[in-house]
Every structure is written in structure tokens, then in C-alpha cells.
Simulated scan of single mutants.
Amino acid sequence: MEALLSTAGLLVILAIVLGLIIFLYFIPVGLWITAFFSGVRLRLVRDLVGMRLRKVPPHLIVRPLITAYKAGLELSPPQLEAHYLAGGHVQNVVRALISADKANIDLTFERAAAIDLAGRDVFEAVQVSVNPKVIETPPVTAMAKDGIQVRAIARVTVRANIDRLVGGAGEETILARVGEGIVTTIGSADSHKAVLENPDSISKVVLSKGLDSGTAFEILSIDIADVDVGENIGAKLQADQAEADLKIARAKAEERRAAAVAREQEMRAAVQEQRARVVAAEAEIPLAIAEAFRKGNLGVMDYYNLRNIQADTRMRDALGGGETPPSGQE
């Protein structure tokens, strides 16, 4: 009997402990007490238990609510809970609202929640709006009209524009526009010396273009941090052009040489053909002479006169440097 009573008492204690754990889980009394003494009035069942049932961690709503109340902001639990359920960062939004309120920046909870849900860090945006930041462009290379490269690095001081944070372009657009403005300004300069003498002219021209239009920032200043002279692109282009002209001239000369060689070979072939014809014609002379002897058209004296003429011709050719005909033609 005593064993049954002890077992029953143990079960009762376990049931009480388990019930207490479940009660404290669904009803965070400690958090409710903290909120109560902080001045935030919460309904224990409807607010805190309702958050548990909606799977919203109460401390992520109550603690930012207490912070906002102490900073003098009027926020309600449903507002913060709705923002959390939408995937927002409640603590970040509350910190941004407090910073904006202290800096006299007109920022409502709805706008801050929209900025946060848009994927931007609303607290950082408020900080940048209060304390502008400097972003540095990568080295921008451009060429002046005299063909000399100029490299410039600019530091852009920007301030966040709260009204354009939703839908406005980011830092990448600012850097791209500033780089384009630097290239245009350097390219319009008559000489690279003018750019080196007055680097502030670049910032003045670029700043006057209104590059922050449609972005989430307001450009306060553009300062040229460094200006260096690069390569002589004009001279390099001229050298490349001269090299290209030289290659073209060489190609044309090679073409003319090949044509001359072809013509020479054609002439040699024509000369050889003529020589072959002469040799063939000369080979027929003895046959013609013999035929003339047989027919009686050529006498012995005529033949000797012909031989004398041939000998005289060979002698004249030898004296004049000409070629002697083959002995077989005599």
C-alpha cells in the first residue's frame, strides 16, 4: 500500500513538473513580467500564448517592443509580429526607427518595413543617411586627345536617400556612372597635361551630371584621389600602323618578285622554244643541200661558197662573243 502511494505521489509530481514546463513554454511569465515593469502592457494569454500558437518566438517581438517603448516610439505587437511573419528583421527595423527618430529623419514603420523586406539593411541605410560614407572607384583608365593614357581613382561621398531606398539602384550603379563620367571628361581633354594640372575639373564635370538620379544615394562630392600617366597609346597605335604598312609593303614586294620570276621563267621557256625551233630548222639544212645536189639545183662551187659564208659567220660570231653553231651543222 505504501509502495502504491509513493508511486502515485511520484507520478503526481512528474505530472505537475511537466504541466509547469508546458505552462511556462506557452506562457513566458518571465518575459511578461519584464515587459510589465518596462511599461509595455501585454495580455498574457492573447498576446504571448497567441504568439506561441502562431509559431512566433515571443522574445523576438517583446524585446524590440520594449526597446522601442523606452526610445519613445509607439509600436504595437501586431505590427512587429506581422513583419516577422513576412520574413523581416524586427530588431533591425526597430533600431533603424530609433536612429531615425534621434536624427530627426522622417521614417515610418511601414517604410522601414518595406525597405527591410526589399532586401536592404535599413539600419545601415539610416546610418549612412546620418553619417555619409565614402566609396572608392577602381582605377579608371582613359585616353586624352593627345594619345596619352590617364589613370584616375575617385572617392565618392554618398548619403542614403531614404525615399529612394525601395527601387533605387545601389553602389555599383554609382561607381559605374562615375567611371563613365571620368572616361568622358578625360577623353574630351586636349592634352593629358591639362588633366594633371587640374584634376578637380574632372570632379566638377562629373558631379554636374546628376549621376545619383534613380539611385538609393545622394552624391555629396566626388574627389579625385590619384591621377597617373599611363601608356602613350597614340604612339603605340602609330607604331602598330607602321608595322602593318611595312607588312603590306613586304607582301606587295613579294608579289611583284613572284610575278617577275614567273615572267622570267616564261621568257626562258619562250627562248628555249625558239632555240629548239632554230635547231630543228638547222637540222633540215643538210637534208635540203643533199636534195639540191640530187636534183641538180646546187653545184659544187655553190656548196663551197656556202661553206665559206658559214665559216665567215662563225668567225664573226666568235669575235663578237656570239655562240658557235654545232659542228654537225657544217
Results as ranks from 00 to 15, higher is better:
residue 219 I to V: 15
residue 148 I to G: 04
residue 84 Y to V: 01
residue 78 P to T: 10
residue 157 T to E: 15
residue 17 V to R: 03
residue 248 I to N: 01
residue 308 N to S: 12
residue 233 I to D: 04
residue 266 E to W: 12
residue 115 I to N: 10
residue 214 G to A: 09
residue 150 V to L: 03
residue 212 D to H: 13
residue 79 Q to I: 06
residue 293 F to R: 15
residue 26 F to Q: 00
residue 115 I to S: 07
residue 163 D to F: 07
residue 187 G to T: 03
residue 307 R to Q: 15
residue 96 A to E: 03
residue 142 A to R: 02
residue 293 F to E: 15
residue 119 G to T: 03
residue 119 G to I: 08
residue 67 T to W: 06
residue 205 V to F: 12
residue 121 D to I: 04
residue 290 A to E: 14
residue 45 V to A: 11
residue 83 H to D: 06
residue 111 R to L: 13
residue 55 K to R: 15
residue 263 R to V: 05
residue 132 P to K: 10
residue 138 P to K: 03
residue 82 A to K: 13
residue 86 A to K: 14
residue 248 I to K: 05
residue 312 D to C: 02
residue 175 L to K: 08
residue 116 D to T: 07
residue 165 L to Q: 15
residue 6 S to H: 13
residue 110 E to P: 03
residue 273 E to T: 02
residue 141 T to Q: 09
residue 321 G to M: 00
residue 278 V to P: 00
residue 241 Q to Y: 15
residue 88 G to M: 08
residue 166 V to Q: 06
residue 142 A to Q: 04
residue 7 T to S: 12
residue 182 I to C: 09
residue 267 M to R: 12
residue 135 I to R: 00
residue 46 R to F: 04
residue 120 R to W: 13
residue 32 W to H: 11
residue 149 Q to M: 04
residue 273 E to D: 02
residue 13 I to A: 14
residue 35 A to H: 07
residue 144 A to W: 02
residue 308 N to Q: 11
residue 108 T to G: 08
residue 52 R to Q: 09
residue 92 N to L: 10
residue 153 I to Y: 05
residue 40 V to M: 06
residue 37 F to C: 05
residue 328 G to A: 12
residue 133 K to E: 10
residue 272 Q to L: 07
residue 307 R to W: 10
residue 142 A to N: 08
residue 228 D to T: 10
residue 44 L to K: 02
residue 258 A to S: 12
residue 122 V to M: 01
residue 4 L to I: 14
residue 13 I to E: 06
residue 56 V to F: 07
residue 49 V to Q: 00
residue 254 E to K: 03
residue 183 V to D: 04
residue 110 E to T: 08
residue 81 E to D: 02
residue 314 R to D: 07
residue 47 D to K: 02
residue 236 K to S: 13
residue 238 Q to V: 13
residue 167 G to F: 05
residue 32 W to P: 03
residue 179 G to R: 00
residue 139 P to S: 01
residue 292 A to W: 09
residue 284 E to M: 14
residue 40 V to A: 10
residue 40 V to K: 10
residue 285 I to Y: 12
residue 90 V to H: 09
residue 13 I to C: 11
residue 95 R to C: 01
residue 243 E to G: 11
residue 291 E to C: 09
residue 238 Q to C: 04
residue 245 D to Q: 07
residue 85 L to Q: 11
residue 169 A to P: 01
residue 318 A to V: 00
residue 179 G to M: 02
residue 124 E to N: 09
residue 156 V to P: 08
residue 273 E to G: 07
residue 226 D to V: 01
residue 233 I to C: 06
residue 34 T to P: 00
